[in-house]
Computed example of a mutant assay.
Amino acid sequence: MTAPTTAERIRSACARAGGAMIAVDGIDPTATPVHHLLCDGSFAVTVPSAGRLAASVATAGAAGVQAVLEMTDYAPIALREPVRSLVWVQGRLRDVADRDVSELLDLIAASDPNPALLQVHSDESRYVLMRLEIESVVAADSTGAESVAVGDLLAARPDPFCEMESCWLQHLESDHRDVVDRLANRLPGALRRGRVRPLGLDRYGVALRVESDGGDHDVRLPFAAPVDDVTGLSQAIRVLMGCPFLNGLRARRV
């Protein structure tokens, strides 16, 4: 495999901090700082307690309301087009019963200690906790759109480097232009005429964005095999760069 599956990309997008909105007919889209996939195939989300959305869901009772969760995966550097991918999760949005809130918050916090969780059902509550029961999931990026089954989403795991990716890409962009240039040498000649930027990094390879007068193009440079740790990642990048000194070896002084 030379690239993450769509389900893996969605799980990584969920794990990274990013923009997420809940949309319901007749109500302006509402920001949700927490969007956590649960093992039963639903999303736990938080919405402002004083907003129209919270009131609408409360009024609907057990029936809930039809809603769409939109998650946006932004590039961590200043690209002309910063959106790398979009994920749309359609389903039924319902309140979480008061008796279940504390247990669910603890469950979420165990893997995603989001500060917004402290503002749910507290003395100075800003958010209420809800559950979006998934009916469909669609992801889209520069290659197109694809739907994903809930079972595949639950079976997938986030990329092992997804939480560190932003810092690494920013570091490449600001301090290691030489590395980006050497990776760019692997591109077809026609694409080297534009400005090559680091776009993504995962266990399967490196993604580059080429910004040119003729438009933007995304290109993946796959590793020879998937990697699982920082040492393997460093070696795989060195191979892509054409560096002969692997495993920390250095040229011998003459």
Rank of each mutant, 00 (worst) to 15 (best):
R238K: 15
D218P: 02
L249T: 10
A55Q: 14
P4Y: 01
A184D: 04
L233H: 00
L107A: 10
Y127T: 00
F161D: 07
P222A: 15
E133T: 08
S166N: 08
V83N: 00
M71Y: 01
R220Y: 06
P113L: 01
S49G: 09
V196L: 10
D216C: 01
I77L: 00
C14I: 14
L208F: 11
A116R: 02
R52A: 10
Y127D: 03
P76K: 12
A224K: 08
G205S: 03
A97T: 09
A149N: 04
L240Q: 12
S49Y: 02
D73Y: 03
V83R: 11
P198L: 03
P222W: 07
G151P: 03
L233P: 00
I237R: 07
A78S: 11
L38I: 04
A31W: 05
G18D: 04
R126M: 12
G91C: 03
V254P: 10
E163C: 08
V206N: 08
S174Y: 08
G232F: 02
T32S: 14
S147E: 15
R195E: 14
V196P: 06
A251M: 13
T32P: 02
R192Q: 15
L201H: 01
V239K: 15
L105T: 01
S85G: 14
R157E: 15
V89T: 05
E124W: 06
A62C: 11
R203T: 09
G189V: 09
D175T: 00
L154G: 07
D218S: 07
R195D: 11
V138N: 10
S111V: 02
A23W: 05
L208R: 06
R9H: 13
A7R: 00
I134K: 01
R253Q: 14
I27M: 04
L187T: 02
Q66F: 03
R209K: 12
R11K: 12
L86N: 02
D178F: 10
V83W: 10
V101I: 08
A139M: 14
L129A: 04
A184Q: 11
F223L: 13
V87R: 10
V120F: 00
G248D: 14
G200L: 01
I134Y: 06
D141L: 06
I77S: 00
P29L: 13
M71T: 04
M1S: 12
S42C: 06
F223I: 06
G51L: 02
V150K: 09
A149K: 05
V230G: 11
A190Q: 15
T143A: 15
A109Y: 10
D100Q: 06
L69I: 03
A224Y: 04
Y204D: 02
T5R: 06
L208A: 08
A207R: 05
P158T: 09
E135P: 00
M21N: 05
V230I: 06
V230D: 15
A7N: 02
I10H: 03
V34W: 07
E165D: 13
I77D: 01
A251Y: 08
L172S: 01
L86D: 03
W88M: 10
T5W: 02
A44K: 09
I22E: 00
A149I: 04
V138C: 15
T72K: 03
R182C: 06
E81L: 09
I10W: 04
E133I: 13
E81C: 10
R195L: 15
R99C: 05
V96D: 02
A190W: 09
L169D: 01
A224V: 12
V179M: 12
D95P: 05
I108N: 05
M1P: 04
G200A: 13
E70V: 09
D229S: 07
L191C: 10
